[in-house]
């Protein structure tokens, strides 16, 4: 949301008309959220409705985008990913990558919960791809929205993102991405609704494991004392045949298990690889 506002301000400083808005969904902090940006070279934007399809998809989260989100990109569009390794897929769009989380770590840009905040580094990449001669405007927008050491670090992150972004070219072995129609497409959402707002569908269809940036990996040191299972907010650590098992389908990667574990080095938090 902040990223969208800063990018809007960057476009505005470069002389464009802009409109930027978040989409508040029901998920709490940690779940992916979306924000949208419209820009126009010539006139004020009058569109007051949601964005169903986009020309540019910017994925700030290091987690790979879902087929539903990829399905919102128009053919010929652009996808900007916060990602260091190649994205081993192709589709009817260009793909650019920027190691934004790494840039954030290098510059000590962390959330209050300790997560690297790669949003401004991603914006550096966006500006390079979308706003001619826009880096100075981005730096101004960052300085206007932030203060002190945070502003200084993010200005560096913006420059780094600008410098370290690259479009990737398809190579042999890339597989086509899976595309699904966007979740808000009215035509795709004509399902039968009950008369009353009574919810009976088990939440296990919601795979919150996609939220996690890090996941706990149990090592050989684990004594299966099960203390981690007692304090797991998701209740997804269980004891099976005398050993602990984490259900990564739902693990949100909070890291409480590692903190409460009484055994040294029994749980290691490791980045979720794509």
């Amino acid at each position: 949301m902040l990223a969208s506002q800063i990018l809007a301000e960057t476009f505005a400083r470069a002389g464009f008309w802009v409109q930027s808005f978040p989409e508040f969904k029901a998920e709490r902090r940690g779940a992916p959220i979306s924000a949208f940006l419209r820009w126009d070279e010539t006139s004020r934007i009058h569109r007051r409705y949601k964005v169903q399809e986009c020309d540019v998809l910017v994925v700030v989260s290091p987690a790979p985008p879902s087929p539903e989100i990829l399905g919102t990109v128009r053919p010929g569009g652009l996808i900007v990913l916060n990602r260091e390794p190649r994205f081993p897929h192709t589709g009817p769009f260009d793909i650019a990558r920027v190691p934004a989380s790494r840039i954030a770590l290098e510059n000590d840009i962390l959330s209050s919960e300790g997560r690297p905040m790669g949003n401004v580094a991603v914006l550096g990449a966006c500006v390079r791809l979308l706003v001619p001669d826009g880096l100075a405007f981005l730096e101004e927008a960052v300085a206007a929205r932030m203060s002190g050491a945070m502003a200084d670090a993010n200005v560096v992150a913006a420059r780094e993102g600008y410098a370290r972004c690259a479009k990737q070219h398809a190579v042999a072995g890339d597989t086509p991405v899976e595309l699904s129609p966007g979740p808000e497409h009215a035509s795709a959402r004509r399902r039968s609704r009950p008369l009353f707002a009574v919810s009976t569908t088990d939440s296990r269809g919601n795979h919150t494991g996609t939220w996690s940036l890090d996941r706990p990996v149990l090592t050989d040191e684990c004594t299966a004392c099960a203390v981690c299972a007692l304090f797991c907010p998701e209740g997804v650590i269980s004891k099976n045949d005398g050993s602990m098992v984490v259900d990564y389908l739902y693990c949100k990667g909070c890291g409480i298990c590692e903190v409460v574990c009484p055994v040294r080095n029994a749980i290691a938090m490791e980045p979720v690889s794509a």
Partner: peptide, 17 residues
């Protein structure tokens, strides 16, 4: 399909899309 029944887990009036 409207009644709150302790034997049938359901959430009543949760936020829809």
């Amino acid at each position: 399909d409207w009644l709150l029944d302790p034997d049938t887990p359901s959430t009543f009036s949760a936020m829809p899309e």
